[in-house]
Design a protein around this nucleic acid. Structure first.
Lengths: 209, 209
DNA sequence: CTTAGCTCTTAAACTACATTAAGGGTATTT
DNA sequence: AAATACCCTTAATGTAGTTTAAGAGCTAAG
């Protein structure tokens, strides 16, 4: 076996290892059989994304459903004054997409931007539909995935309208302890719905106690 | 045919008419075949609900997925000060449930209460699971139903964190013109995340223009 | 090495919205 | 028919969070 062949095999192994993550992801729900695994993995496109690079920009139609293999993204809207409002973060082993724009093929109001250098696996709308039509298990699995996201979102809305900024901050730290270390405070402030200045004040008061 | 028989037939017709609504509901997605229709309708429980009666109270585990046949419900949480915060309304031909509580069999943080005298069709968790397992089309249909609800919720969260109370009020009127006439202002204020007093002020200023 | 650009913090002035209180109108219950 | 509860509004006062400004530490790019 010459050096070139070895290089090819290394590449294949690396790809296999990467795809193992998404396969394992489905093991949390209804595990895929060999045929389904192949149907899925053969349709995934791997992309490396740099810090500050966009997966989606306001006005564009969202074209794919994205699995985060490694790294971190934020999804946010920008108001009339130009202020960003973070709706969601996604780190490794999570999905991110503007589902509304993807489904209805309408221009998105949102941005999806890498906060860290990242690797993603993407499914185009057509491929996703193909999987839904030919392998009902994907209907099931994505139903459960989106139900979980719905539950999270509803919880968050309740918090947003009924709790103070301090409470929201403490809930965030409890719910996402890893994220609260990993992300800059400005991004957390934008997620909590306060200015960085006010978050700074909150942290200070919390520390004094 | 005697009078009793006529009465029975009338009852059957009425029941059939009621179930027609939910069948038509699914026609918006992937229409059900005869077997699926029977599987569904034979598992539905019809309940009449009085104004101010609860489908779910905080602390209880949500036991069923509810289709609103007629009437109107609100789903809300109550904060430490005892203030209600409406997360959602549901009128005829819509679904309502605390999905988090239903799925994870955990005590709910929410109330679901009738704002008008209502009629609902309920599916227990067990029956819902039975449908999912035996008729994959329900996975598909409920996936799409919940995706639509997710889109709505995300839109609302974005509004809540990025728009003023006046903007949120105007969006609400545009998006749900029927509801804005049908509901008392106190309920709309609770949904928008402001006090009834402040909503009153907003309306007044809006009218002046 | 240096410049430019983020990030974090503090603090004073400001604003959108909450709270409290009170009065009048309208349903729903008795 | 009366009583009770709920609904809507106005207005004074109060506050959580914003805005603006300014400086200091950190990181990244040329």
């Amino acid at each position: 076996m010459d050096i070139d062949q070895k290089a090819v095999i290394l590449e294949i192994n690396k790809a296999t290892i990467i795809l193992e993550n998404i396969i394992n992801h489905f093991n949390k729900y209804l595990p895929l059989d060999e045929e389904e695994k192949l149907a899925l993995t053969s349709r995934l496109t791997e992309r490396k994304i740099k810090r500050r690079q966009f997966l989606l920009q306001e006005g564009d139609v969202c074209k794919s459903f994205t699995y985060v293999q490694s790294g971190c993204f934020k999804m946010y809207g920008v108001d009339d004054k130009g202020v960003e409002h973070n709706l969601a973060f996604a780190v490794e082993d999570d999905w991110i997409s503007d589902i509304g724009s993807l489904h209805k093929e309408q221009p998105s109001k949102l941005f999806i931007e890498a906060i860290e250098p990242s690797v993603v696996l993407q499914l185009s709308k057509g491929d996703l539909w193909y999987l839904y039509i030919n392998y009902p298990k994907f209907d099931r699995n994505f139903r459960v995935i989106i139900e979980d996201k719905y539950i999270e979102l509803q919880d968050r809305l309740l918090q947003t309208v009924s709790a103070t900024a301090l409470n929201r901050y403490e809930s965030f730290i409890n719910q996402y302890p890893q994220l609260s270390n990993r992300l800059p405070s400005t991004q957390i402030a934008s997620y909590l719905g306060v200015t960085p200045e006010f978050l700074s004040k909150i942290k200070n008061e919390r520390f004094k106690k």
